[in-house]
Amino acid sequence: TIEDAIKKLLKLAQKGQPYTFGDFTVTSEEEAKKLAKWLKKQL
């Protein structure tokens, strides 16, 4: 689910690992949080 993807994304971001989700490449926890907010709006 999208919720699971968001959780995984935040965990990876906390470890400092870049994470690619579709067109987004997230390289920081701050970016992960922005992406998570955006994804929730898409639901």
Rank of each mutant, 00 (worst) to 15 (best):
T20N: 06
G16W: 12
G22E: 10
K34L: 09
F21R: 01
K8F: 13
Q14D: 06
T27L: 12
K40S: 11
Y19S: 04
Q14M: 14
K15F: 13
F21H: 02
I2D: 02
L35Y: 02
D4R: 13
T1Y: 10
Y19N: 04
D23Q: 12
E30W: 10
S28Q: 03
I6L: 11
Q42T: 08
F24V: 04
K7Q: 07
D4S: 10
E3Y: 14
S28L: 11
V26M: 08
D4K: 09
I2F: 10
T25D: 04
K41Q: 11
K37N: 08
K41C: 12
T27F: 13
T25P: 03
K8Y: 12
K41M: 12
T20Y: 04
D4Y: 09
V26T: 04
V26W: 06
I6A: 01
Y19A: 08
A36H: 05
K37R: 12
A13F: 13
G16M: 12
I2P: 02
K15W: 14
K41H: 08
L39H: 00
L35D: 00
L39D: 00
L12D: 04
Y19W: 12
A36Q: 03
W38R: 02
E31A: 11
A36Y: 14
A13H: 04
L9Y: 03
K40Q: 12
L39R: 01
K15A: 11
K7E: 09
S28P: 04
A5T: 10
E3R: 13
A13S: 05
A5H: 09
K34N: 05
T1G: 05
E29A: 10
F24I: 08
G22M: 14
E31T: 07
K34P: 00
Y19R: 02
L39F: 03
T1Q: 08
I2W: 13
K7A: 09
S28R: 01
A36P: 00
L10P: 00
Q17I: 15
E3W: 15
P18H: 08
K40T: 12
K37H: 08
L12Y: 11
F24M: 03
P18W: 15
I2T: 02
Q14F: 15
L10W: 11
S28I: 13
E31D: 12
K7G: 03
K41I: 06
A32D: 01
E3I: 14
L12N: 03
A32H: 03
K15G: 07
K37E: 12
G22S: 07
K37F: 11
T20L: 13
L39M: 04
E29F: 14
D4G: 07
A32Q: 02
A13L: 13
G16R: 05
P18K: 06
F24A: 04
K11M: 13
E30P: 03
A13R: 06
F21K: 01
G16C: 15
K8E: 08
K33V: 10
K41V: 05
T25N: 06
T27P: 04
G22Y: 14
L10S: 01
Q17P: 15
T1W: 14
A36F: 15
